[in-house]
Amino acid sequence: MPTNSNHISRATRRRTIVLLTLICFAGAACTAAVAAGTHRAAQGQAAAGGGYNWPIKPFDQPHPVRGAFGDPRTSFNGPPTQAGLNSKGIFAYHFGVDISAPDGTAVYPIRSGIVHMRSGETVVVTSDDGDAFEYWHVVPSVREGQRVTAFETVLGRVRYGHVHLTELVHGRQVNPLAPGHLTPYVDRTTPRVDSALYLGARNGRELLPEFLRGRVQLAVAASDDTSMPVPDRWNGLPVVPARLTWRIERAKDGKVAVPEREAFDVREHLPKQAFWQTFVRGTRQNMANFAGHKMWRQPGVYLFRLDGSFDTRQLKDDIYVLVATATDTRGNTGTGRFIFTIHNKPGFFSK
Rank of each mutant, 00 (worst) to 15 (best):
H181F: 10
R205C: 00
R284T: 04
V125W: 07
H7I: 14
H164I: 02
T183F: 09
N332G: 04
T327M: 13
V18S: 06
R261Y: 02
H116R: 12
F264C: 05
S75G: 12
G292N: 03
D328N: 15
G78A: 08
K272S: 14
I114V: 15
Q146K: 07
W276Q: 05
G130Y: 10
L197K: 10
R297V: 11
S195I: 00
T3I: 07
Y160N: 13
T126A: 09
G336K: 11
K88Q: 12
T333G: 00
F290C: 04
T74D: 09
S5P: 00
A32F: 10
D187H: 05
V220K: 05
E268Y: 08
G347K: 08
L197N: 02
G236P: 08
L165S: 07
G120N: 14
A28T: 11
V216E: 01
M295K: 04
V240P: 01
C30P: 00
T283K: 01
G214A: 11
T3D: 12
A132F: 02
H116Y: 09
T12Q: 14
R73Y: 14
R15C: 03
V154E: 13
L199C: 04
P259D: 05
V169Y: 03
A33N: 11
Q298F: 06
E249K: 15
K252Y: 02
T12L: 13
A324L: 10
R205S: 13
F275V: 11
W276R: 06
F340G: 01
F338T: 00
T325C: 08
T329P: 03
F279M: 03
L199I: 07
L165K: 05
S75L: 10
K272P: 00
Q314M: 13
D128V: 12
P55E: 10
I8V: 09
V158C: 08
R267L: 05
Y135K: 03
R261A: 15
F25D: 03
A326C: 08
I17L: 15
R10F: 09
W276D: 06
T341I: 13
A26F: 14
A222Q: 01
F310E: 08
W246Q: 07
P55W: 08
S87I: 03
I319W: 01
Y93D: 13
G49N: 15
R305N: 14
T166Y: 01
P179G: 05
